[in-house]
Structures are given as C-alpha cells and as structure tokens.
Design a protein around this nucleic acid. Structure first.
Length: 491
RNA sequence: CGGGGUGUAGCGUAGCCCGGUUAGCGCGUCUGCUUUGGGAGCAGAAGGUCGCAGGUUCGAAUCCUGCCACCCCGACCA
C-alpha cells in the first residue's frame, strides 16, 4: 500500500511534515525543538555546502572556526544585539554533573558553578569581534574575510523541522573593512552570491531587497535579504547579508590606524544561510508524490532499478546495469544501482519518487532484447523508452534540462503569484484569495508597517533592490510613498 | 505563559464513558515457500513498564489526585 502523503491542497503544513519524515530527511529529537538530520537530508545540505563553500572561496574568503561557548558578558556589549538575542539564549552555568541524593539521576554539582556563565552562541559576532580587535591594528591588517560553518542555538517558542529549530546548522561570514564603501560592497556581493546559488543550484528564484528597520538584524545598520516564494503563497527568507557599520567595532573597541595616521573604527559585515534552505527546497519544488530535488543538489541524480525473473536474466540485467552505472559515473553523474533483492521493482519506483531522485532507469529482459531502457523523470513524471546508444549523453542533458525547467517553472509560479495592490480592498482580497507577493506603496513608517501586519497578517518582506523608483500613495495611511515594497505572509 | 487536545509494540490505532481471565487490529519486523515491468501472496513467529507516581478496589489501560511529555491555537520569533 502506498504510504499516504497529505495532499498540498488539503493541508500544506501537514504535507510538508509528511515529506520531511517520509523522505527520511529528518526526525524529531528527544529534545523539543531540535531535530535529527538523517542521511538523506544531510546529503542535500552537504551538496549545498560544497557549492557555497566554493563560491565563498572564489570571492576571497577563508574558513575559520570560533567556539560554541561565549562569555555571557560579550552578548551585552552591543545594545541592540543583546536586546535581539537575550530572550532566546541557552546558558551554561555548571561544569560538572553528580549523582543526585536519591541515586536515580544526575544534577549539576553545586561546587562546579562557573565564575561567569557561558552562552551557547545564537550567532558569533561578539566572539569574532573580540578576536578581530586583537588582530587589527593597521589598515594593513584589513580586510579580514572569514567564514565559518557551524551550529547555533536560538531557543525558539515554536519550531518546525528545518524552517525553525532551536539548533540549526549554518554558515556565517564575518568581514572587517577599512571603509564604509568596501563593507557595503561586500554586503551586496554576498547577497548576490546567495541569489546566484538559490537560482542556479536550488532552482529557486529570489527577490533581493533590504529589510525594513523592524525586521533588521539586531546590531545591523542595514539587513539585505533574499526572499523566496513557497507553493502555498507564503514567503520565506532564504538568506541574509548585513552591513553592520561600526557597531561591533565600537562595542569591542576595534580601531585601526589609517593611511593618514588617524585612528578609525573598523567597518563590518556578516552574512548567513542555514539548513532552512533544505526546508525551502522542499516547499518550493516537491509534490504530492514526495520530494523533488533539483539535479544539481540531488545526492543521487540517477538510480538504476534492475528487473528480472530468471537467474540468467538477473546476470544479464545486472551486467548491463553495471556498465551503464560506470559510464554515467565517469561522466560525473551521481548514480546508484539498486540491486537489493529484498525489494521488488514497484516498491523501489515508489521509494525513489518519494525521495526525489531526479531520474530513474528501469532495465529488464525486454530492454536487453531491444537495446533500450525505461527512463522516468521525477519533476514531470514522464516515462519514455530510450535507446542505450548515447544513453550517458542523453542523461547528462536530461539532468540539465530538468534543472532549467524546475527554475523556469518556479519563476512562472512566482510571476503568477505576484500582484500589485493599489488600495486596501485589493490588498486584502489578493492576500485572502491566493497570497503570494504583493507589491504596494509604503510610506516608510514603522506605524504603518505594524498596522498592516495587525490588520492583514502580511509583513513587508523587503524593499526590493534594482526596481525603478515610483512615487505613489500608501494604501493604508494615505501618505506619500517613494517606492513600492514587497508584502507577503511569511514563514 | 494562556486556551484546547493527546499519551496503549518501531509507526498508526481499538478498548476507557459503564473496572473483570491471555490488551485486540493494521502497517512494519523475523522465518519459510512462491514471487519480481508501479508499494506481492500464503503460512508461521517475535515484539507491551497501557506516559510517570500515588490512591480507591477482591481486581485498574479503564475511576480519583498529582506530576511529566508532546501536539494544535494564541502570544513570541533577524
């Protein structure tokens, strides 16, 4: 019997959880709000990591690693930063456990109380800027362009697998610059890297923009973001890049002598993407049959399922399958031959569709006779019988076609789900009927932004970059507006 | 933290209102045989602190009290 996946049309949230669980991407952990990333999910993350890591290095960054535990006092150094994160920090207070009096458990040993509490990093600006202040004296020490891969903990009230968990994996870039202009350029450059990655690898079109002050990173001067649209019409922030100004340099007294022999505070950026991207991938592309993964990120791009009855057929089919596998492998395709005997072909077909393997080759005695295989594509669910001659080239091309088609399909979905609203009634109507991105004028005030959120549930996702300035009137306040912004209900 | 709900085998559940022998069923697992081009069939088997602790009772999955955990809705969230 088919394992039922809740239909998207019935309950999108349940559908999402079903995909994550049944495609074996992740499990709930014994600790509320944290998750176990299973091999299928982690392999996608590893593919994301390796492409991003390459892109970071190509733009001049080096990897480093700063510790998980941060002195509590560090968080307090930057006022906005502490205000933003204090509510969700996990704190280490003791260094030792002892068996309790009843003898049936353990408890923190009272005499191991730490001199100063340690915070499990919610992000690493503070510990990194403490180091930067030691490393930087002169303009000759700049810029510093670092990235680190790691985990962070933010004690969340309400969590969802991959999208919001208390502990998550991410990368955080941290850079130090001599001038404002250079830091701003770095911030924008990394935003472009994220957008390129999302579009070319995740097949996920994104809107680049700037966050409003209320959505800004705690401690940033400007927060840039990429916003993606999920299949249910809700927006998901897929990456952020922050221009931090001199806020952290001032908090950690990080000054350098410039070429005019003057002391100046260092300019900073930070930028990150997380395992949330795995959730974005699921919600952007998958269907009611299961996961759909773009070929460039798919852990297995092609699976070969052999079919046979007799021992003789088995030998012949496996021999041919192995040849195909080796040919694809040497063409750089991530290919797997599933020769397990305990599962039948039909079972395997369903399993690999559920897990989102882009292409499936089925090969049986009939194919041996015809010099063919059956090729099935996951995104369109098309099946065709193709000749074995030139199969490797065909498959390499098919993977590229699929990658492109998935992106184009996501673009046309987004286009169909992006609307302009010129008055309140229209705004509410669009939001309630289909959601998606709504372009509307905004008067630039926190008050109006809060009002819209309260009345409609939509928030300003970003002020888009690179769109023409267009004067108008805010539909909610009636005040003049300089530019349309992107509203949506968001994750 | 407020409101609601649920805890029974790896997963999903029946039984609880109205206490009664051995806690039933489906999926999955294991063994054997037959099967294999879209989630196989038959036969057999293993697997349970009924969330935890106390209480009532001759007897508790079932009734009572307390606690714990998780889920949903709010609040909260770069």
């Amino acid at each position: 019997m088919a394992e039922a996946i809740t239909a998207r049309s019935e309950d999108f949230s349940k559908w999402y959880i079903d995909i994550v669980r049944k495609a074996k991407l992740a499990d709930y952990s014994p600790v509320r709000g944290s998750m176990i990333i299973r091999p299928n999910g982690y392999a996608i993350w590893e593919n994301m990591q390796s492409e991003l890591d390459r892109m970071f290095k190509e733009t001049g960054h080096e990897n480093a690693y700063f510790p998980l535990l941060i002195p509590e006092s560090f968080l307090a150094r930057e006022a906005a930063h502490v205000e933003g994160f204090a509510k969700e920090c996990a704190i280490v207070t003791h260094s030792r456990l002892q068996v309790n009096e009843a003898g049936n458990g353990v408890e923190p040993a009272p005499d191991s109380r730490l001199e100063e509490n340690l915070v499990i990093r919610p992000t690493s600006e503070t510990i990194i800027w403490d180091s930067f202040s030691n490393w930087i004296q002169s303009w000759r020490d700049l810029p510093i362009l670092l990235n680190q891969w790691g985990n962070v903990v933010r004690w969340e009230m309400r969590t969802r697998l991959f999208l919001r968990t208390s502990e998550f994996l991410w990368q955080e870039g941290h850079t130090a610059h001599a001038t404002r202009e250079e830091a701003v350029a770095e911030t924008k450059q990394m935003l472009d890297v994220y957008a390129t990655f999302a579009e070319e690898y995740m097949a996920l079109p994104v809107i680049k923009g700037v966050k409003t002050p209320s959505e800004r990173f705690a401690g940033a001067v400007d927060t840039y973001c990429i916003e993606a649209l999920m299949q249910d019409g809700k927006a998901l922030q897929a990456g952020t890049s922050h221009f931090l100004g001199q806020n952290f340099a001032k908090a950690f007294d990080c000054q350098f002598q410039n070429k005019n022999n003057e002391l100046e505070y260092v300019w900073a950026t930070s930028w990150g993407v997380s395992t949330r991207l795995v959730g974005a991938l699921v919600m952007a592309h998958s269907d009611d049959q299961g996961l759909v993964v773009p070929p460039r990120l798919a852990p297995t791009q092609v699976v070969i399922v052999p079919i046979y009855r007799s021992e003789e057929d088995r030998q012949n089919v496996l021999t041919r399958s192995t040849e195909i596998k080796e040919s694809l492998g040497s063409a750089g395709v991530r290919v797997k031959l599933d020769d397990r005997e305990q599962y039948r072909p039909g079972w395997k077909f369903n399993e690999y569709e559920l897990q989102g393997v882009p292409l499936r080759i089925a090969i049986g005695p009939r194919d041996l006779a015809n010099n063919s295989v059956e090729l099935a594509r996951r995104d369109t669910r098309d099946k065709s019988v193709v000749s074995l001659d030139g199969i490797t080239e065909l498959i390499v091309g098919e993977l590229e076609t699929m990658q492109t088609r998935m992106f184009e399909s996501a673009v046309s979905f987004r286009t169909s789900m992006t609307s302009d609203a010129n008055d309140q009634a229209e705004f509410v109507d669009i939001l309630e009927s289909r959601g998606g991105f709504i372009r509307a004028h905004w008067d630039g005030t926190d008050e109006t932004e809060a009002l819209v959120k309260e009345q409609t549930g939509a928030t300003i996702r970003c002020v888009p970059i690179g769109e023409p300035m267009e004067e108008g009137v805010d539909p909610f306040s009636g005040k003049p507006s300089a530019q349309k912004v992107i509203y949506a209900k968001a994750y």
